[in-house]
Amino acid sequence: MEKAIFTISLDFELHWGRLDKVQLQKMQYYYRNARVIIPRLLQLFEKYEIEVSWATVGMLFAENWEEWKAYLPDNKPYYRNPDLSPYHWVSQQGKTDGRSLFAPELIESIIQTPKQEVASHTFSHYYTMEPWQTFSQFREDLRAARKIAYDKFGLNLESLVFPRNQYNDDYQAICFEEGFHAIRSNPKDWFWKHTEDEKLIKKIFRTGDTVIPMGGKTHYSMETLDRRVGYPINIPASRLLRPYKKNSLFNRRRVDRIKSELSEAASQKKVYHLWWHPHNFGNYPEQNLLLLEEILQHFDTLREKFQMESKNMKSITEMFSKSPLKVI
Rank of each mutant, 00 (worst) to 15 (best):
K193W: 04
L200Y: 10
V211Q: 01
E198D: 11
E198P: 10
T218H: 11
T195C: 11
L200W: 06
T224N: 07
L200R: 04
D226M: 08
R227A: 07
H194K: 13
K193Q: 14
V211N: 01
D209M: 00
G208N: 04
H194M: 13
D197V: 04
G216H: 14
R227N: 06
E196L: 08
L200D: 00
M222W: 03
F205L: 14
L225P: 14
P213L: 05
H219S: 15
L225I: 12
R228W: 13
K217Y: 07
M214W: 05
E223K: 15
K199G: 11
K203D: 06
T207Y: 11
T224L: 05
H194A: 15
M214G: 06
R227Y: 08
I204C: 09
V211F: 10
W192R: 09
I212K: 03
E196N: 14
E196M: 14
L225Q: 11
K202I: 01
L225W: 05
K202P: 10
H219F: 14
V229K: 13
R228Q: 13
K202G: 10
T207C: 12
K199M: 12
R228D: 08
S221V: 00
K202T: 07
T224Q: 06
G215A: 04
T218Y: 04
K202V: 08
I212W: 04
H219L: 03
F205E: 02
L225Y: 06
E196A: 15
K203I: 13
E198Q: 11
I212C: 11
K199F: 07
T218I: 07
W192Y: 15
W192T: 06
E196R: 07
P213K: 02
D197A: 08
R206I: 02
L200I: 12
G215V: 01
E198K: 14
I201F: 08
D209P: 00
G216S: 13
G208R: 11
G215T: 01
Y220D: 05
R227G: 00
Y220G: 13
I201V: 14
I201Y: 05
D226P: 01
R227Q: 03
T218F: 02
K199L: 07
L225C: 12
V211I: 14
K202L: 09
V211A: 05
T210G: 06
G216D: 07
K193M: 13
E223D: 12
F205D: 04
H219T: 09
I201T: 06
T218V: 12
S221G: 03
G208W: 02
K199H: 13
K203W: 08
H219P: 01
L225T: 10
P213M: 01
T210F: 01
H194L: 14
V211R: 04
E223A: 12
K193R: 11
F191K: 00
P213R: 00
